[in-house]
Design a protein around this nucleic acid. Structure first.
Lengths: 235, 235
DNA sequence: ACCTGAACACCGTTCAAGT
DNA sequence: ACCTGAACACCGTTCAAGT
């Protein structure tokens, strides 16, 4: 029972010279990561997906970390490409639209959350520059509305942290649900409010969305008061 | 060179019957996790720390996941114990104090962030109940100030998400800095604002604190407006 | 220059003992 | 009832080849 080659794959053939490239590997890595989550992406798994020897990958990336860096790079480029800062009717709707777009993007592409938000790695200069550019554009919009730079920085970071936090929270809850599968505990908890909290924690949208909007509007409203009074952002 | 037993440890002695308990293992696991981060905690490492055979641990915890569940349980209990909801002068300062305390606790104990906030696992009924109790207490405080239950839920979750997000962000930046070590890139970026952003991203406190406060106050201020108008939180 | 298998250290987990 | 080493599958990575 050991002699029959498993159906389709003849296997024993050696790959020609330029049959894989760094780009191919990164692309395949994204395919795998999107299917099984980044945490479960392994070099052997990736090699099987590419139909290459595991060690071949190591000619292009000397460490798995380097591959992940390349993925993060590409993810970052894509992210910044699909979420440019576009000027709206006024500073408020410009910011609101921007961070809505950010939220949508991260919700639609969990792998971007894994690479850009959760991966504890050095931000590339390119990514930093892209962030800087966005910020410059926002500052200009806000300056025209009467913000000073310190306030603009605080408001921008507040919105940014809020959206990142929401994206991470959403991602973790999704992974959690998927891991639990069908056997979700359905927690019968004593108090009615705890029950509602449980529902809220589980509901994919609904309360989650309302809370995101609530905080977003809170930040924007407070920003508005900074113009009127001209006060500094500090306590 | 293979015959001399390495100094202090005689090794070959077998452990007596009740020499380790589930509690010992969990306690040791915390010690290791606090030293090398939870992600790097391994069963062999833990066994060495306890001076036990690796497989002995498996008599108490059949899977590593079970051990992590036990850790999460203990972490959750401790967390809820040190961050009870205490009534302050008014609803606003009560909430403010509570989420300040939450932030401090997570900042002081990264392992709590790893277990409670980042670990994608089922929340235990006990933890949910504790959360529920806190929420009940807050709702009561807020109800006395004129909030209805829906608004109170939204405000509570908004504050909760904000504080969780901030704790996670802070944690990730710390891990990042530690991983980079001395060879931090010091990113020389083009635009001055990008530079300030880089500084902000790196500064342990400073801007980070200001942004946390800014969002917190924004949420609380907006909450205040909900009482006055009596408006529902939804759109 | 590019692809590959053998080999190693490390991890999670099982099993068949030992006491 | 509790502790243990041998053994296995899987992972990241290195090395010494092959073409």
């Amino acid at each position: 029972m050991a002699e029959a080659r498993t159906a389709s794959a003849p296997k024993k053939t050696r790959r020609p010279r330029g049959s894989i490239s760094a780009d191919d590997i990164v692309a395949a890595a994204f395919e795998v990561a999107e299917k099984v989550t980044l945490a479960k992406l392994s070099m052997p798994m990736l090699a099987r997906h590419l139909d290459v020897g595991v060690t071949s990958i190591y000619w292009y990336f000397r460490r798995k970390e380097e591959l992940l860096d390349a993925m993060t790079q590409r993810a970052s480029d894509e992210y910044h490409f699909v979420t440019p800062f576009v000027e709206g009717a006024d500073w408020k709707s410009s910011l609101r639209n921007h961070f809505h777009k950010m939220r949508e993007t991260f919700r639609a592409h969990p792998v971007l959350v894994e690479l850009i938000l959760l991966r504890a790695r050095a931000v590339s200069p390119a990514a930093l520059a892209a962030t800087g550019e966005k910020f410059e554009a926002m500052v200009q919009t806000m300056a025209e509305a009467g913000f000073d730079q310190d306030d603009a920085l605080t408001v921008y970071m507040s919105l940014s942290e809020h959206s990142s936090g929401a994206a991470i929270g959403q991602y973790l809850r999704t992974v959690q649900r998927d891991a639990e599968g069908v056997d979700a505990p359905t927690d019968i908890v004593s108090t009615p409010v705890a029950q509602r909290l449980a529902e809220a924690g589980r509901s994919t949208h609904g309360i989650e969305d309302a809370v995101f909007e609530y905080t977003l509007e809170a930040i924007l409203d407070r920003a508005e008061s900074l113009i009127r009074t001209g006060a500094k952002s500090g306590r």
